[in-house]
Structures are given as structure tokens and as C-alpha cells.
Design a protein around this nucleic acid. Sequence first.
DNA 1: GCTTTTCCTATCGATTTTTTCGGATACTAT
DNA 2: ATAGTATCCGAAAAAATCGATAGGAAAAGC
Lengths: 153, 153
Amino acid sequence: MFKLSSGFKSGLRILTLLAKTEPGQPVPISDMAPKLGLSDKYLEQLLMILRRAGLVRSIRGSNGGFLLAHSPAKITVRQILEALQGPIDLCECSREDCQECVRPEVWRAIETCFSGTLATLTLQHLISRDAFQILPHSIVLPDSPLWQEGGGI
Amino acid sequence: MFKLSSGFKSGLRILTLLAKTEPGQPVPISDMAPKLGLSDKYLEQLLMILRRAGLVRSIRGSNGGFLLAHSPAKITVRQILEALQGPIDLCECSREDCQECVRPEVWRAIETCFSGTLATLTLQHLISRDAFQILPHSIVLPDSPLWQEGGGI
DNA sequence: GCTTTTCCTATCGATTTTTTCGGATACTAT
DNA sequence: ATAGTATCCGAAAAAATCGATAGGAAAAGC
């Protein structure tokens, strides 16, 4: 299956929950876990990953908990994906002449496309009810009016 | 890690090989395996998957082998990916009211974006040396000049 | 009927992902 | 101070996925 990990999806829900709470008000794990339907320990581990990635910060001790490290508009879906699912690396090969795959430059183009979309999509987009569009895109041949100089494969 | 499976990459190379042979001329496994650097048995398994997906057809018995089921321009990279790596399902839920994910319509849009690119990219693009571009895309807000009526989320 | 070659299914090993566990450390409030 | 709260850390069990191998059945051609 070509799918997003459940860790990533949980991460989104965690950050969404934090984004909806009073800014500056830390939320403890014991508070979040039941709301998210996750065990305390598992949630804790996901939060640690998000913290090391710099997306949330934590306050220890009594009345402690977790907060967003930045405003929702500054946290991109790409950052969340890379934190919890690892780097987006459709074609692992770095060599231009890789025998393993056909035309690796194609994967790199698609990769840029995909992670570009995720980089423009922020937590703010997800929590607000504001409308937005994600423009479709397509393969463009040199004779198209959309062709851009120097961008071809 | 968010990456393409090696099965998919092998599948691309298999189909590329078939696309370059005389049309109507079946190629046996014993012929392909050494060229692709795969074991006969593993290659066989991949070809079975491609056959069940309707991308290649087979001829049994002596002088048998495999052929493309359609012309290279009719076989999309998306079909190959879905055959060998399973359905592209960034957000598993199909329900509109899914509690698991945040704004499922967003994933569906991204998914359409991603698999849309792969659907326009054909085997013909990969085997030819013709240049092409894959246009980047982005989030568009209603106040943007790029906003298209009725396409918003 | 023998060879060639596809077809089917089961399994094993390795890796990755998800989840659980035990305890250490830091902070607050009383 | 000390008890309580809550984050931190590392290890590892459990489950799922993926890559690859193996044995044999069915079909077609000569």
C-alpha cells in the first residue's frame, strides 16, 4: 500500500488539538490521550518525536505539558510528515545513471511537486474553515504555452 | 520513509524492456531475468501481478512469454504503481465524517494532485528521450487571481 | 509424450512500523 | 524538604509489510 503512516495521522490530530487550545497553555499527556484515543505511552513517544523536530515544546513538572512551538500558520504539513514518517525520498538513488530505476530525474520532479504541495499546506489551513484550492498540475510538453524555459526533463 | 518500493521500480524496468521489444513478440521470463538482474522466480511473481492488473498479457507453452497489453502511451505510471505497490491511499478513510483524520477532503485533494501527475505520465514518456515538464502546484486562497470558481474546499 | 513456459500458493527472512514497558529526571505546590 | 505531577529516555515486544525463494500444477507446441 502506498499510504501515509498512522503515526503521521496521529501527529496531525495531536497538533490540531494543540492548535485549538489556549495559546501558552500547556496540555499534559493525560489530558490528550483519551481525547485522541491513544495510550499515554504511545502518545508520549509521538510527542517526543514532534519535540525533537521542533514542532512542539514541553514544560516539565506539575502543571506542565506540551504546546505548539510556533503559530499554526508556521507549521507545515511537510514538516509533520518528515518528522513522523521520515524524509520524502521517492527515489533513493542519488546517481544520475542509476540502473535500478528508470529516469530518476522523473521521480525527483514528482517528489518536488508533492513535497511542494505539503510545504504550502499549514496547520492553519487544516484547522480553519477557510476555503482553499490545490491546483491540479500535469505533464507539459515543449510545444505547450505552459512550457517554462529551462525547467524541462 | 516515504519511498517507492523496489518492486515498483522493477516493474517499470520490466515494462520498459517489453516496450522496447518487437510488438506482438512474446518475451519469456528466462530471457528477461538476466537482463534485469532478477531471479526467474521473483520476476515471474512480478509479471503475474502485472498480468492480473491487465498491464501485460501472457502466452503459455513453448515460444510463449509476456507482452504489453496496450501500447506504451496507454499505460500510465499510476497504473504500474497501483499494481505493484497497492492502491494510492494517502488517507484511508472514504467517509466524509471520519474522525481519524483532519479534513479528509484535504487528503483527497492532495491525493488527486499526486496520482493525477502519475496518471498523465505514461510509459511512452519514460522510454522516449522527449523533454517534458511536471509543473509545480500550490495552495491557492480565494483572494488569489488563480482562484477558480467552484473548485474550492 | 516430452519440453517449454506460464500459473498458483505457501513460506521464510529481513526490515519497518506500531505499541508497550520500566524507570530516571525535572518542576511545582504545599 | 517532600510528595505529586509530568516530561524524558532507552529498550524491546508485537504486528505488519516487503523481498525473495521454492515446489509443483496446468497449458501449449513440437
